[in-house]
Design a protein around this nucleic acid. Structure first.
Lengths: 223, 223
DNA sequence: CAGGGGATTTAGTCACGCCTAAAATCTGCT
DNA sequence: AGCAGATTTTAGGCGTGACTAAATCCCCTG
């Protein structure tokens, strides 16, 4: 354990991916899920996960999945704190459009020092949540994040809040923005067609019909 | 030429180093000078310079030195623009201490997108010079930078302005700050001892005796 | 309970960017 | 001119993190 190789940007990305995917279900995370999220081949993901394990950041059950150790979770939460603080700062302090903020933060999260991260947090008034309702890990890397559900999984009649779009896909965010929908908005699912069919969802007074690919990416917080 | 392998962070660092070293004299830049500046072995610098040449960013005269092509200069000026804008922004907008700003910008300069860079420039009011008198390349990557001279090379009687400390060495910056000296301050050289000996320099009403290592790192703009 | 399909891991490569050691080249001095 | 010493380049390696192809494993179905 803890073979003291230092934590590279890539290792941080893997820790972050495993952490996020863990939120989705109680199961250990599969290699292919990680590969898809990082945009990497399954073979590469398998090799990197093995490396995380050798560093003491993850525990692997070969062929069955992986989960983070407390040390691994710490790494993930540090990156996620940086990421969410940066998103907030870029949008609020610099006026960067919301659909561009994620991509920029994805790179900067690895580049900012702990000192800069805390300066930014202080400038923002040490926020505990981003404007969409996502919590921001504390500077001690603790978080209490209620699990989110994909909108595509919700039954008609369910009410909730759209919290984020997976990977903050800029095209999806722009499409939604064009229809007057943004993270942070409340909604009610009115109808669901079978076979991954479109959902009819009410946001405010407007009804929208949203396709399966889109609603699978929309993470929601339900009552 | 221009094998359009993309310009990695390392390649950017080499371009920046060659550009800065070129300012010091008209000669092409030696491998060992680059190696020392990047903190890398001469063999590594030699190999990377060859790579820059294959990308069309530099021209090499083996065993005699290297200089940038217009394309290489463009790369260097883009990084330098990012660097100086970031230094300014970190200090002014976020209150980061001046002796920490350089190190942070050294990393971030490779991570920010052109869009973010321009947002930062706009927030700063599109500055053309940093507070020390160093010019900032324009967004079209043009610059008119008068060559600086090491303070150690100045004759007694010379007046000028301290513009920067090489590599913004934090220890040197802190030492100078402790004596009330900062980049941007005017001075007059009063006396110089031979054999790399200490200089006596007047800053404002105070006289200071400064050692050779320090004055070699202090870049100045003289009348 | 055997076979097959899908997921996972292993095996073998590659590019990048660094290293040390050794060979090649240049320069200055006699 | 020729040699010594310094600089530069070449040769050979290493770690990281990606890839494809091939082998292996898990589990579901017949």
């Amino acid at each position: 354990m803890a073979v003291r190789a230092q934590v590279s940007d890539s290792v941080q990305d893997y820790a972050k991916a495993i952490w996020s995917l863990s939120r989705r279900s109680a199961e250990p995370v599969s290699t292919s899920a990680i590969a898809e999220r990082i945009h990497v081949s399954a073979a590469s993901a398998s090799a990197m996960v093995k490396r995380l394990e050798s560093m003491g950041l993850a525990v692997r059950r070969p062929y069955h999945g992986v989960s983070l150790t407390p040390a691994g979770e710490r790494v993930a939460l540090e990156v996620i704190r940086h990421h969410r603080l940066l998103e907030l700062y870029l949008a609020e302090a610099l006026g960067m459009p919301w659909d561009r903020v994620h991509e920029e933060a994805e790179v900067l999260e690895h580049a900012i020092s702990p000192e800069l991260s805390e300066l930014i947090a202080a400038k923002l008034g040490n926020p505990t949540h981003d404007p969409h309702g996502d919590p921001i890990p504390t500077s001690e890397f603790e978080i209490n994040e209620p699990p989110t559900r994909a909108m595509s999984d919700l039954e008609p009649g369910t009410r909730g809040v759209l919290v984020r779009v997976s990977d903050s896909d800029p095209a999806m965010l722009r499409y939604l923005a064009g229809r007057g929908i943004a993270p942070g908005d409340g909604f009610e699912v009115l109808d669901r067609e079978p076979f991954d069919g479109p959902l009819t969802v009410r946001f405010g007074d407007e009804e929208h019909v949203l396709g399966g690919t889109l609603t699978q990416a929309m993470r929601t917080l339900t009552a």
